[in-house]
Design a protein around this nucleic acid. Structure first.
Lengths: 229, 229
DNA sequence: TGACTAACGTACCGGTTCGTACATTAGCGG
DNA sequence: CCGCTAATGTACGAACCGGTACGTTAGTCA
């Protein structure tokens, strides 16, 4: 036993605002991701913290603002990861594949973030809308995609009429679905999309898909369109 | 005024078990999809029904079972839609594109269903797991995909090593993401993925993507793999 | 037609849960 | 070393919400 009965005053400071705040955010992230916004319990978050519920209201104001703060930090993490992306030395095909792989990995490594995004969508992204911080975050990944696309299109490797935001949506779709819908998909089709043994397979599949789309010759006639002649 | 003060006995029967049950399911579907499982209020569902809260417990037993019943019916709808799918008269390329379009349309037309699936995933698909009905539902779309893939692979049009469940996941990813993440994506990137003016664009994009993937020659060397020589 | 049961309504309970009033202490500046 | 304030803890309240006990009526069938 390090100390008798009093709370263990481990690292000198017993009053550390930044530390308390960060710990609340950590626990709240897990709790919101676990149970959803309405399913999460403020008392439960407090209980798993070394501080009390009072502090949650002291630092964040309320449950709603706490959730917004959780979202802001979660999006901040992905933003930082995207900023570290460096694919300028690669040729367009390899660069896109690398980008897809990084996106794939990031989604897999942050299932809580995926859940928070799902939850926020159930609430019509009203917390993002209310947050000034999140309004002007702007994905760095988009700039990367734009640069790669331009290079690929100028060299004639890529189809010309592909938009960066659309491509980002396409890559994210696959990565997001795999993690977000893991449970229903597994229950209905008997296949775990996040099975470690299948990881390399799905990672390659995503890259193949994106490259195939970008390098394919677009056929002019499409089923569903009327003007065939 | 059709009647004095008593409840309007419009269509003959005032006691109709099947009708009451169905009305509860209708309202519950909307309420659960709107607010999530924990956000939904049993009292609110009852209030929007022509009956009372007592009947919810009379017919379904509780909130949890009601949600399960809602899920069962929602999945039943998509199952029926898939069974109507008839693409056997089309060549493999057109058939896959048609399948993708039907999936695309169904997701767009049933945003509440998408929300329910998201919500169920937040709860680790525990309601699906607890439902006997949903355990043995098995997507008819999968059979269709299997047939098309076999035909396409035998004729040499499609890449041989593509699995039906994987392709289903790929198509669903795009369709699902577009609807499910509409709000966060719109808030962060300023683009509404469900904008009617962009509908045809994204529908064609999905078809192009899938066809490109299926008809592309797989390059043996992939970035990230070690065995390049 | 009368009685039996499925179907329905009312009123209420008890636990939960967000939020807060009030008391207290640590640590820093002067 | 003293006082001031940021930081923290305790105890509690009021509304909410899932669920139920109990009473009532419609429809049906012998």
């Amino acid at each position: 036993m390090t100390s008798v009965d009093e709370p263990a005053r481990s690292n000198g400071r017993i009053r550390d605002a930044a530390r308390t705040r960060a710990e609340i955010l950590d626990v709240a992230t897990r709790e919101f991701a676990r149970a959803g916004y309405d399913g999460a319990r403020v008392d439960e978050i407090a209980a798993r913290t070394r501080t009390t519920k009072r502090m949650i209201y002291y630092y964040f104001g309320g449950k709603e603002q706490l959730f917004t703060a959780v979202l802001e930090r979660a999006y901040g993490v992905i933003r930082e990861a995207e900023q570290e992306l460096d694919v300028d030395h690669l040729d367009p095909v390899a660069a896109i594949r690398r980008l897809a792989e990084v996106t794939f990995d990031h989604h897999e490594q942050h299932p809580d973030f995926i859940r928070l995004v799902s939850i926020e969508n159930i609430h019509d992204a009203e917390h993002i809308a209310a947050s000034e911080k999140l309004g002007r975050i702007g994905s760095p990944a988009l700039d990367v995609i734009r640069r790669i696309l331009t290079a690929g299109q100028e060299s004639g490797l890529f189809t010309a009429d592909v938009d960066a935001v659309d491509l980002h949506a396409m890559i994210s779709s696959f990565c997001f679905f795999r993690v977000a819908n893991r449970h229903t998909f597994g229950a209905l089709f008997g296949r775990d999309l996040v099975d470690p043994g299948q990881r390399a397979h799905y990672r390659a599949m995503l890259g193949d898909m994106v490259i195939a789309y970008l390098t394919a010759e677009r056929s002019p006639d499409r089923s569903g369109d009327r003007h065939t002649s």
